[in-house]
Nucleic acid binder design. Structure first.
Length: 264
DNA sequence: CTTTGGGCCTGGACGC
DNA sequence: TGCGTCCAGGCCCAAA
């Protein structure tokens, strides 16, 4: 995408999760793409004068049509289209509209309200056991909810929170402040290995997961605990008659799955 | 400052 | 078959 210009920008509605900014089309049209980056779950498309901040939400799909490739008829949930100078077309489809797009000036990017308080990238070199431990020290809430707080660490959503705690052997109910030392170290390793495996597998959440060329996603990433209430935990030969296997509970209105025997 | 709960939104699963 | 109801997700934001 780098080097290409937004030749035409088509908006088919005025908002997704939040309204599109005023003059969205005008501000982007004619801008040349300099860099494409990611921060937390935000895709950042930087041009000379603007940065497009783009979140796919949970049901958002990006479809990239190559030069001369036939663009499919406009669907009900096709909300935005970008025609690039190369002849490629990008279509953003988002049935649930939990996605969002915003624009900011490059020099204001770091101060943008959606980005300014985001914690360290879990796969970057600013994330480690001691750093996580420090961030958890004053937090009384359950560790599951606290690691889903983007200010603590970026981009650990509901499913990967459960999976990470499982790998780390930490109970989701444990007070976050008590996740220190070796436990924090273990949790960092778990988050990194879970995210790494999920990325390698090409994502894992929705069943209609798609690649940008429209192909079906492939889900090699299988959940150890998520959605597996009552099943035996794959790691410890859980005696289901004693532990009832994987358990489900609700924390902050979100589902949590864990093995009470392996996770303490 | 932290924590909690509401809100956004649709499709799919479910029961009648 | 066609309704109504519930649930799932990310994550911001107002209120406590």
């Amino acid at each position: 995408m780098e080097g290409q210009t937004f030749e035409r920008v088509i908006l088919r509605r005025k908002n997704l999760r939040i309204p599109f900014p005023d003059c969205f089309v005008e501000r982007l049209t004619g801008q040349q793409i300099l860099h494409v980056n990611r921060r937390a779950k935000y895709l950042l498309i930087e041009t000379l004068d603007e940065v497009l901040i783009w979140h796919l939400g949970m049901s958002g799909q990006v479809r990239i049509y190559k030069i001369d490739e036939q663009v499919e008829p406009i669907g009900k949930h096709d909300h935005v289209q970008f025609d690039l100078s190369s002849g490629a077309t990008i279509v953003f489809t988002d049935p649930r509209r939990f996605g969002l797009m915003d624009l900011t000036k490059p020099k204001h990017l770091a101060d943008h309200r959606l980005l300014k308080d985001i914690g360290p990238e879990p796969l970057g070199n600013t994330f480690s056991g001691p750093i996580l431990a420090h961030r958890l020290k004053a937090r009384r809430g359950p560790i599951k909810q606290v690691i889903m707080d983007g200010k603590v660490v970026a981009g650990v959503g509901n499913i990967y929170a459960s999976e990470s705690l499982y790998r780390a052997g930490i109970s989701p109910k444990r007070s976050a402040a008590t996740v220190q030392g070796g436990r924090a170290e273990k949790l960092v390793n778990a988050i990194q290995s879970v995210l790494g495996a999920a990325i390698e597998a090409g994502g894992s959440t929705l069943k209609d997961h798609r690649t940008t060329d429209g192909g079906l996603g492939y889900f090699q990433f299988s959940f150890a605990v998520y959605g597996r209430t009552g099943q035996a935990c794959p790691d410890c030969d859980c005696d289901i008659s004693l532990t009832k296997g994987i358990r489900h509970l609700e924390q902050g209105g979100r589902s949590t799955y864990y093995c009470p025997r392996k996770q303490r």
